[in-house]
């Protein structure tokens, strides 16, 4: 039998890290004059803190307080009529901030713009639902996953996790394993906390084999009755070949012996 190695915390660490590896960066290009993007940056004026082009898309950094006005101008004056995506990135550990982004699409020009702003941990952001209906679910998801509050949102409620869930799972600080609330959620909710002892902790290793569990596992060549206690070791059972009681189809088969 293959030796069992515990895989309880396999998500937490990587097997191999290259000390000299540098994450590749997408090059930033300047906004060229006479292009569509230059007009977009000009229309926004001083509200743009930084603007550059990455992979053919315009990226603009703005103040978080001005997000509604900026996106309104982009929608009404620059023809960006679709908000295809809106979410956040957790940079709390590194920079103490969230990075929020709005991905906008201009169908007539076939151009995309990303509006980026930064907020601190307990700050809220203005909703852009009056401009884009598609931002409704996106902002709810951002609230669900990061806990970022959105001002003037029509229905700010968790969208993916249950309403009574504790914590915001896309934060870098959210534990992948060992969170007490998450690991007992279904038991607490359905049966109550007193049933934790009866049901037991959840086993997150689907390949785990309990050597002494004779109800769910058996060992070839060492079969014991169902549910027997084998903590003291089990005796070897002779393997019974089918040719001893059936027609001998394969006389020379000793594969079972070798496998054992």
């Amino acid at each position: 039998m293959r030796k069992y190695t515990p895989k309880d915390n396999v998500q937490a660490k990587s097997y191999y890290t290259d000390r000299f590896w540098v994450a590749p960066r997408v090059p930033k290009e300047a906004v060229e004059e006479g292009t569509h993007f230059e007009k977009v940056v000009a229309a926004l004026g001083a509200q743009v803190k930084e603007a550059y082009i990455q992979v053919g898309q315009l990226v603009m950094h703005i103040e978080a307080t001005e997000n509604f006005q900026v996106i309104k101008i982009l929608k009404e004056q620059c023809g960006y009529t679709q908000c295809s995506e809106q979410s956040a990135v957790d940079y709390l550990a590194k920079e103490g901030e969230f990075e929020l982004f709005y991905q906008l699409l201009n169908i007539n020009e076939a151009k995309r713009v990303r509006v980026v702003c930064r907020i601190k941990k307990d700050e809220a952001i203005e909703s852009i639902v009056p401009l884009f209906k598609s931002a409704n679910f996106a902002e709810r998801e951002m609230f669900d996953m990061f806990g970022i509050k959105v001002n003037n949102h029509p229905f700010l409620k968790r969208i993916i996790m249950p309403d009574d869930w504790e914590g915001h799972p896309l934060l870098k600080t959210y534990p992948l394993q060992g969170d007490e609330f998450a690991s007992w959620y279904e038991v607490d909710k359905i049966f109550g906390k007193e049933y934790r002892n009866i049901i037991g902790p959840e086993n997150r290793d689907p390949a785990r084999i309990d050597r002494y569990d004779t109800k769910r596992f058996s060992r070839i060549g060492y079969e014991v009755p169902f549910g027997a206690d084998i903590s003291g070791g089990e005796t070897e059972q002779p393997i019974e070949y089918s040719e001893t009681f059936m027609v001998n189809y394969n006389k020379s088969s000793k594969q079972l012996d070798e496998r054992k």
Partner: peptide, 12 residues
């Protein structure tokens, strides 16, 4: 193998 999935329906 995540926080949001029931690890075996025999728990419920």
């Amino acid at each position: 193998n995540t926080y949001a999935t029931v690890q075996g329906v025999d728990r419920i």
